[in-house]
Design a binder for these strands. Structure first.
Length: 494
RNA sequence: CGGGGAGUAGCGCAGUCCGGUAGCGUACCUGGUUUGGGACCAGGUGGUCGCAGGUUCGAAUCCUGUCUCCCCGACCA
């Protein structure tokens, strides 16, 4: 959907809006290869900002980074049964290690049959298998625990259907893998990291999330318990934004990771794993953007401020430029990232529209009038409100504006989330809300996987989470009518 | 893998029914006038029409095969 000028507009079809916006906004483009994505420089700058903040938070909670191999021997992946079954259907498999020139078809290459591997290598869909295999040799004693390691990596999941950013065949992520001496410690770790993710989402992405636990059906393959943060997109669909798994002793058992405890006895270690991915960039776009393009929270915007000079003559240009240099230095000194768009090949109006599309939080325009009056024009991306402020107060005003915008963007998303958690008590109501309003639905569920499946089959809605600290409440299941002890959150999800 | 749609210039598309040697918008390049919200005028560059084969004097167009992408479903932490 576009207007006559070719400017992307939000369309009825959400994925179309999303696709067009992101591609047009220079964030990403399909490579055209099996649902992979090219992350363009501007988009990657956002990812780098996310990485830097997350990495800082991981270090603050005692974690260190390491790197493990891309390839997982098939026999490793097989070791944890639930894990193996869960990922078997979406793995890229390396069977040969060499090509050769096709003798019958000059200039073409073919697989060299002589290079067949004795055992296939799986391109990691996640790294539990390789990492736990390594942990066996790293852990001997309770003194080696806890082992708190994070990895920044790419993984491949050969999904039947992909969706830009939200479910790409290859994606970038971080995966934390920890080992502990006790169950309690591991559970605490899994919960801690869920809270770290929630704090990151809310404080930096300005994205309010719901914290909770997954039902057995939705649990990670190989985990005993999965904690998650769930966000709500503007179209009423939910998005799982991060997960943290309590693995119990499943992987320790499968990979024989034992340690000698304080009593001198052999014991299996307890594990967790947790991850967030480039999917978060999709969440960022879908949660905040409007018809003019991206709306980026100041804390993650590659540029927090863009300065657009306005002038006619060379003399005016020089006078404006002199002012801009002073202001740019002041803003930079305040730790604000500034882009000075002094291209002389585009008009100001074009630049305004372009930077709005890219979601730059604050735009400063300085023209001859401003030079004469000692002012600048500030425009905020979220509300598009403009104000003229004194030149000497500009840096200070921008600081205030950025802080206010971070809050305002979060506040708007929070209000949207709050108004889209609907309590329902009947099946009819459930379907009605799902169809016409969307968002999360708080409803009674009898606790059976069978009922969960049935509801999904009828409505496409899944149980997103059992909220943390969920208050007990006697009721009857929305679908089966059987007794229920608590409400859970349903939604249609990406 | 099932059902539907589409591959023609960087991007978005028309042309295909009814075969005659490729066009529109935008972008790009040159010159000029412009510049406080996506400028205008004039001129210009750019495409083996997804790929392979066939029919024909002649194929973007007809036939056969094949690949890819998108949407819906199945699938999916």
């Amino acid at each position: 959907m576009s207007n006559q000028k070719g400017i992307p507009k939000r369309s009825e079809n959400y994925s179309e809006w999303y696709n067009e916006l992101v591609v047009k906004a220079d964030l990403a483009d399909h490579s055209g290869i099996r649902g992979c994505m090219v992350i363009k420089p501007y988009g990657y700058a956002i990812w780098e900002k996310m990485q830097a903040q997350l990495d800082k938070m991981f270090k603050e909670t005692g974690h260190v980074n390491a790197y493990f191999p891309l390839f997982v021997p098939r026999s490793y992946l097989e070791k944890e049964e639930g894990h193996a079954e869960g990922f078997a259907k979406e793995c890229a498999v390396v069977t040969h290690y060499r090509l050769k020139v096709d003798p019958d078809n000059k200039g073409k290459l073919m697989v060299d049959k002589d290079s067949k591997l004795e055992e296939e290598l799986i391109v990691r869909p996640t790294s539990e298998a390789v990492i736990w295999n390594t942990y066996r040799t790293w852990i001997q004693s309770y003194r080696d625990l806890p082992l708190l390691i994070n990895q920044w990596a790419n993984v491949v999941r050969w999904e039947m259907r992909t969706r830009l950013f939200l479910r790409t065949a290859e994606f970038l992520w971080q995966e934390g893998h920890t080992a502990h001496a006790t169950q309690q410690e591991a559970v605490e770790e899994a919960e801690r990291m869920m809270h770290v993710y929630a704090e990151f989402a809310e404080k930096y992405m300005a994205l309010p999330v719901l914290r909770g636990r997954k039902t057995p059906n939705e649990r990670f393959a190989g985990a005993l318990d999965t904690y998650c943060i769930e966000a709500l997109m503007q179209d009423g669909w939910a998005l799982q934004a991060g997960t943290s798994h309590f693995l119990g002793q499943n992987f320790a058992k499968a990979f024989e990771v034992k340690f000698t405890n304080r009593e001198g006895k052999q014991d299996l270690v307890w594990g967790t794993s947790w991850g967030v991915s480039t999917r978060l960039m999709g969440a960022l776009v879908m949660a905040h953007s409007d018809d003019e393009g991206l709306v980026l929270p100041p804390s993650l915007a590659p540029f927090q401020v863009v300065i657009v000079p306005i002038y006619r003559s060379d003399e005016e240009a020089a006078a404006v430029d002199a002012q801009v240099q002073i202001l740019k230095a002041r803003l930079t000194k305040e730790g604000i990232s500034v882009k000075y768009d002094n291209r002389d090949t585009q008009k100001p109006g074009f630049k305004f529209a372009e930077w709005e599309l890219k979601g730059v939080p604050v735009r400063i325009a300085i023209g001859p009038k401003d030079v004469a009056n000692g002012t600048v024009e500030l425009a905020r991306r979220d509300t598009k409100a403009k104000q003229v402020v004194a030149f000497d107060q500009a840096a200070e005003q921008v600081q205030l504006l950025l802080a206010d915008m971070q809050q305002a963007i979060f506040g708007r998303a929070q209000a949207f989330l709050d108004s889209h958690i609907t309590r329902v008590d009947t099946w009819e109501e459930f379907k009605e809300v799902l169809e016409n309003k969307g968002g999360f639905i708080s409803a009674h569920w009898d606790g059976s996987g069978e009922t969960e499946e049935q509801i999904k089959a009828h409505t496409k809605a899944t149980i997103r989470c059992i909220p943390l600290n969920n208050p007990p409440e006697a009721g009857t299941c929305i679908f089966s009518g059987s007794p229920s002890a608590e409400r859970v959150l349903f939604a249609r999800a990406y």
